[in-house]
Design a protein around this nucleic acid. Structure first.
Length: 496
RNA sequence: GCCGCUAUAGUGUAAGUGGUUAACACGCUGCCCUCUCAAGGCAGAGAUUACGGGUUCGAGUCCCGUUAGCGGUACCA
């Protein structure tokens, strides 16, 4: 029997859950489901200053909303620091790591990036660290005497590091290009590369699937595995998600639009977002793009992962396409395809949020709600649209769009036509789609005007808009009373 | 600076081991439907497969170079 697959998603709570993280989580989740494995969540909270409880909650909520809950965890890396230190101590004792007594570099006003470059330049062609070969006894004495030291890994001076990435293929890196990395800070704080490796070993992780930003550093981690006498897991790196123009995604600049909670709050369906994210960097091969979770699991394979980074094509200054148009399209597609009685509760949430909810919608008017949602959904893209664009259907207080009024209520004859139509409808026996249509067409013929004039005028009179469902569907949806009332009320707007 | 990764229409992706006019989806344009807008149906525009060399009878697919973007290079994660 093959070894059980164990994968993990290991975000650091220094920010909310963003689309990149969500996609990494998704691919891990899919891989676990595909191989009947276990999906583990580990919060990498070792950077205490930058981590926060609120961020942890945010990540948990985001994952839960996407229905990517972990099988095990959440575990917190900070609770394993003793293990991390113990591993480092062992490496020192075995001569695979050493104490570095070089005083910690002082921070200055340069940016981190500048400091890295300057340091790298200065370091070029230099010998390895002078403390590398300090006898252990001597080092221990100095520690004993109260001197502070960081622990560094001894990286071979010559040769090459290799590993086979499940996505990017064979990877090589000269040991000469890898400096002796710090495992434990001089204040005793374990650093990222050590912590992940120790935790992944501890948790029995078999496949590490993460962002490509870790690709070159993986060589360092492989070194740590080997030093610890453990065979490294398989690695698979995912292409990064970048901003339009192949710009890098910046938390500060693109914060809102890459945050998962934004999609929740703006009326996305979790399944639609997941489906969209799955296709960002992965393809099952065929032409099918809309996939259920089960289909996704069935088709998922690391072989189908693309190597080039994917542009997340949002448009910051275009309210119509505030996020990737394909994501919006996909969400609309999901809204149309799903059973109405599953969509309705989500619409209900939005109505409540916008103060448009009425308890009858859950009771005697439940059928009405379902029909109305069904009527509107073909032209909306998010559930929020029901409460904004759909407001006239749920409330008597709504705006008349200026352009719509200009276009459809311009004709002065409407001043008499609208009340006339209202009278006819008020007197109608059966206030049905066909009944209202017949009445309207008969009335327009009598008055010698085109039916279109009345129909379009009525649409704007009834909804304040120039676009929307078929006119007689709107009338039936609003009901006789509201229809008649709004038709009469609209007289004031004619010619405005 | 050094190291690495990547490069197919505006965007996301297809195109088994190199083999006819580079495919699909979104977006865009037009038409049909029609009381409007969507949805749906149909049609179309849009790619000398980043650029330059090479290997080959033949390259988007292999090799080299250039360029660009991104990543890493930290006592961050």
């Amino acid at each position: 029997m093959a070894e059980t697959v164990r994968v993990r998603f290991a975000p650091s709570p220094t920010g909310y859950l963003h689309v990149g993280g969500a996609r990494t989580a998704l691919f891990n989740w899919l891989f676990a489901r595909k191989h009947n494995g276990t999906f583990i969540l580990r919060i990498e909270d070792t950077d205490i200053q930058r981590s926060s409880e609120a961020m942890v909650q945010g990540i948990l909520e985001g994952l839960h909303w996407l229905r990517l809950d972990a099988d095990e965890g959440p575990f917190f890396q900070s609770s394993f620091v003793d293990e991390h230190r113990a591993a480092a101590r062992r490496l020192v004792e075995e001569g695979k790591a050493y104490y570095d007594f070089t005083p910690k570099e002082q921070t200055d006003d340069r940016t981190i990036g500048e400091r890295i470059v300057d340091r790298a330049r200065a370091q070029a062609g230099k010998e390895r660290n002078p403390y590398r070969d300090l006898p252990l006894k001597e080092a221990l004495d100095r520690i004993e005497a109260g001197e502070r030291a960081a622990v560094r890994l001894k990286v071979p001076e010559t040769g090459v590091s290799r590993f086979d990435d499940m996505v990017y293929g064979p990877q090589e890196r000269d040991y000469a290009d890898i400096e002796d990395l710090v495992l434990i800070r001089s204040d005793g704080h374990p650093l990222y590369n050590l912590s992940v490796v120790v935790d992944d070993i501890e948790m029995g992780i078999t496949h590490v699937i993460r962002g490509q930003d870790h690709l070159t550093n993986t060589h360092k981690q492989v070194l740590i595995y080997r030093a610890l006498g453990v065979e490294p897991p398989k690695f698979g790196h995912l292409p990064l998600i970048i901003a339009p123009g192949k710009e890098k995604l910046s938390k500060r600049k693109h914060g809102e639009v890459v945050s998962v909670t934004t999609y929740r709050d703006r009326g996305f369906l979790p399944d639609a977002l997941v489906n969209f994210l799955a296709l960002l960097g992965w393809s099952p091969g065929g032409d099918q793009e809309i996939m259920s979770r089960d289909e996704m699991i069935e088709k998922f394979s690391l072989d189908g992962i693309n190597k080039a980074s994917a542009v997340f094509n949002f448009h910051e200054n275009d309210p119509q396409n505030w996020t990737d148009p394909k994501a919006l399209w996909m969400n609309a597609e999901y809204m149309r395809a799903m059973p109405v009685d599953e969509l309705a509760p989500l619409v209900a949430d939005q109505l409540k949020k916008h103060g448009l909810w009425r308890d009858e919608y859950a009771g005697e008017q439940r059928e009405w709600l379902l029909r109305t949602v069904d009527l509107l959904r073909a032209r909306y893209r998010t559930t929020v649209d029901f409460a904004t664009l759909g407001r006239p259907y749920f409330s008597n207080e709504f705006e008349y769009e200026e352009a719509a009024v200009k276009k459809n209520l311009k004709d002065e004859r409407l001043k008499t036509l609208l009340p006339g139509l209202a009278d006819r409808l008020a007197a109608l026996n059966e206030f049905t789609h066909d009944g209202t249509e017949k009445a309207l067409r008969a009335y327009s013929e009598e008055q010698g005007v085109k039916a279109g004039l009345l129909i379009n005028a009525a649409r704007t009179a009834l909804t304040g808009q120039a676009v929307g469902p078929g006119m007689f569907d709107i009338m039936v949806t609003l009901g006789r009373e509201r229809t008649v009332e709004r038709l009469r009320r609209a007289v004031d707007l004619v010619g405005k």
